[in-house]
Simulated scan of single mutants.
Amino acid sequence: MQGLVHGMAASAAVLAGSRSAFARPDYPTKQVKVIAPFAPGAATDTCARIVAQRLGERWGKPVIVENKVGASGAIGAAAVAQATPDGHTLLLGTIGTSATNAHLMPNMPYDTLNDFTPISLFATVAMLVVVHPSQPIHSIAELVAYAEKNPGKLNCGTAGIGSSPHLAALLFESLAKVRFEHVAYAGVAPMIPDLLQNRVNVSLGDASSFLPHVRSGALRAIGVTTATRFEGLPEVPTVAEAGVKGYEASAWYGVLGPARMPADIVSKLSGDIGAIARLPEVKQQLAPLAAVTVGSTSAEFAGFIRTEYDRWGKLIRDSGVQVKPS
């Protein structure tokens, strides 16, 4: 997946200028709204506000963020799916709203693949595999060996059933052929104290959540879930290079609109978001999230969503995971 992401960024840089040049000159004709389907302060909200602010600056016209929360992001996403497809209502989508929730939740209020126009993949976020330093585990190979000898003995904490870290843990189990005892929390914050006290032995989660504790020595990072190493911890190998072949997982954020948006408006938005993603100051704004900006084309993002939808869907079906909307 990471190779695809790098390819997206390269082609987006080449095409950005030409795409915007063909867009109708009168767009936007009114206030544009970016719906963030999670609460203020969450990573999704942060990305939505960066995109909205920068688009407003480029256009000289107002772009606002509206938080529509609930049902694991489905309420906000459904509002965009039902909106007029004129480019004035956009979604800051996530791997959940745009790929995995359809496989996890019954009675989804929208069709994930057919009710939206993918516009641009904005950013991806690396996750870390961490253990308590009292554990006799200093590498992915040692984690696999310990889990093989002690099936189900290691507690693995994640930020909720069906969350990106939980699915990343399931993928690890599937590819490494090991088994953890899963402990699901209502988010990362309530899990951290148990992890620091070794009541939870191992965890996978967004790098930004674990980084302060890794740097203080309270946790030990033994792997990065993406295909390339994380700049914040360059000495920590990826899970794949450490021996779990084919392993790759990340959280991600992208901009979508309702289905059947005019192609020229999609091109303008995609080009402008790509240009925003390449701004050094935007990269700096996203650094606290351990996020890497992409800025893909619409076609690239559509292909990316399809790949994510299919591969996580198979894992979810094979594992039998289901969640209730919250």
Rank of each mutant, 00 (worst) to 15 (best):
V131L: 06
V131R: 11
H132C: 14
P133G: 12
P133T: 15
S134Q: 14
S134R: 15
S134M: 10
Q135K: 15
P136G: 14
P136R: 05
P136E: 14
P136M: 02
I137S: 00
I137V: 13
I137T: 10
I137K: 00
H138R: 15
S139H: 06
I140N: 12
I140M: 04
I140W: 00
I140C: 12
I140Q: 05
A141M: 09
E142F: 00
L143W: 05
L143E: 02
L143Y: 04
V144W: 02
A145T: 14
A145C: 12
A145E: 15
A145F: 05
Y146C: 15
Y146K: 07
A147W: 02
A147P: 04
E148Q: 15
E148P: 03
K149I: 09
K149Y: 01
K149F: 01
K149L: 13
N150Q: 07
P151M: 01
G152D: 01
K153Y: 13
K153R: 14
K153L: 15
N155G: 12
N155R: 14
N155D: 13
C156H: 14
C156G: 08
C156V: 10
C156L: 14
G157W: 00
G157H: 00
G157D: 06
G157L: 00
G157T: 02
T158P: 08
T158F: 07
G160A: 01
G160E: 10
G160Y: 08
G160C: 00
I161S: 13
I161P: 09
G162W: 00
G162V: 01
G162S: 10
S163P: 08
S163D: 08
S164I: 12
S164H: 02
P165V: 00
L167I: 03
A168N: 03
A168P: 09
A169G: 06
A169W: 01
A169Q: 11
A169E: 09
A169V: 13
L170E: 08
L170C: 08
L171V: 06
L171T: 09
F172R: 08
F172T: 03
F172H: 11
E173R: 02
E173W: 00
S174F: 01
L175M: 14
L175V: 11
L175D: 07
A176V: 02
A176E: 07
K177E: 11
K177Y: 06
V178N: 11
V178W: 04
V178L: 06
R179W: 04
R179T: 13
F180E: 08
F180R: 06
F180T: 09
F180W: 03
E181A: 12
E181W: 07
E181D: 08
H182T: 04
H182G: 05
H182R: 06
H182F: 13
V183W: 03
V183Q: 08
A184G: 07
A184E: 09
Y185F: 13
Y185M: 05
Y185N: 01
A186V: 09
A186K: 10
G187P: 10
G187K: 00
G187L: 05
G187Q: 05
V188P: 05
V188F: 12
A189K: 13
A189T: 12
A189L: 07
A189Y: 05
P190A: 04
P190E: 05
M191W: 02
M191S: 02
M191V: 02
I192C: 06
I192G: 04
D194H: 03
D194V: 04
L195T: 02
L196T: 00
L196S: 03
N198K: 07
N198P: 03
N198H: 11
N198R: 08
R199V: 06
R199K: 10
R199A: 12
R199L: 09
R199H: 10
